[in-house]
Write a protein that binds this DNA or RNA. Structure first.
Lengths: 238, 238
DNA sequence: GCCACCAGGTGTACGTCGTACACCCACAGT
DNA sequence: ACTGTGGGTGTACGACGTACACCTGGTGGC
């Protein structure tokens, strides 16, 4: 083996790893092999690196998945055309769908996420904002967001599943600052949360009235379906 | 240790295992610990048995999950009252939802299933049959089933994801018999499949036009939402 | 020019998972 | 009495995620 050891390795000094490269490689690997085929070990191998090296760039596999989902969401086509009212919502949702469809694993991954990254909140805020711009009340916007469910993502996770529970308790002023930041970045999400909790955000963790939201969406669909049936609807044959 | 060995073990001769007991225990364990906490080893321990013993009753973990999901579906409240038209659909879907909510893991489990067991097909057939009884065309029934999505289950797996691909190729007459059996047990599912493939069931594996189904459901929801907005809808405050 | 630092990559090891495979035992049918 | 055979056992293997100790090459301070 000494006859082989070239001190200045020729072609591939192997670019340094960083979070971005890890995430991109993970997305590519998942595209190829599906979520089930994505393991830390396999991913490391793909990057020509030892498994533990990944942990310098992502906290653990959950964080890796979070990052991958963010990457997909960032790939949502921006709504360049300024469409009127509800059509803007439709446009945005269909754009999300296109991005999600590019990655067959994305639906499952998004559904499994329990943390809400800023990127995820950003998308929800954008959809809510589009509904508000179309003249919807905060109240109605809220329930329609639930009803859209899957469709917001090209398929709806709950906004708040579990309390954030970071490590050490944040100081009051840090909390204040975070709240202000949140209000600025996600104003529409905030107004919905305020409406739903009647201004008492402390109870935001326990979520919405799921039974109500379920029935709301069900009735929206069934009423619409019945209207189609009465009008003798048939699907367009291509 | 010989001083302890009692030849006729006193209280617990430990009832024999069978598929039913395994499934019930698995459901109970998942109820307690969530899907993530359900492992073959843990389940075996709960049953006072060695892990490999389970494999005499379920083929593998996938089959275990299939069985658990079937158990949940069998727990759907039967629609005793004969409601008129669309209300029967609503009633049935809400019944499914109640059953699914009893088991927090069920949604995730159902979504992850790729095989369609007879029990699953049975539920879909029942929902389709209820829509047909309400006067919906096969065509409209089909698309409404897609649109209901999650809601059919208390949250929509595709009917056909992958070809069945059992082990050895079934003989033609066995295939014939299976088809006849299917037609008898799931007539409404069959008529939808026939409609969607225009009578050529050989192509049933490649599924429906997902883009169309997605847009159909999206428009149903958005049209309904817009109607509510125009009528000045507000949610009922309790 | 030296050295101390440290971000980033390595190696080893642990506990858990699903499950293949060989076994063994108690009872049923002859 | 003999022989299957259905059901429970024991051992073992190859993944997996990741903790922990280590090393190493480049950078900033002096």
């Amino acid at each position: 083996m000494p006859g082989r050891a070239d001190p200045a390795a020729p072609a591939a000094p192997r670019a340094r790893l960083n979070r971005g490269r890890v995430l991109v490689a993970a997305v590519a690997l998942a595209d190829e092999t599906g979520l089930a085929g994505l393991s830390m070990r396999r991913l490391a191998q793909e990057l020509g690196v030892v498994p533990m090296a990944l942990y310098k760039h992502v906290a653990d596999k959950e964080a890796l998945l979070d990052g991958m989902v963010d990457l997909v969401i960032e790939g949502f086509d921006p709504p360049e055309e300024a469409l009127p009212g509800i059509d803007a919502v439709r446009h945005r949702v269909l754009a999300a769908r296109r991005a999600v469809r590019r990655h067959p694993w994305a639906r499952q991954a998004i559904e499994s996420r329990t943390r809400r990254t800023p990127t995820v909140l950003g998308h929800m805020d954008a959809v809510a904002g589009t509904l508000r711009a179309a003249g919807f009340s905060v109240d109605l916007t809220h329930h329609v967001m639930h009803a859209l469910g899957n469709r917001i993502w090209g398929f709806s996770p709950e906004l708040f599943d579990a309390p954030p529970e970071d490590g050490p308790a944040p100081t009051p002023q840090a909390q204040q600052a975070m709240a202000a930041d949140f209000a600025e970045r996600f104003p529409h999400v905030l107004e919905i949360a305020l409406e739903a909790t009647r201004g008492d955000l402390s109870g935001v963790g326990q979520g919405c009235d799921e039974d109500f939201e379920f029935a709301f969406a069900l009735d929206l669909l069934l009423d619409g379906a019945q209207r189609l049936q009465r009008s003798g609807w048939t699907s367009p044959r291509r």
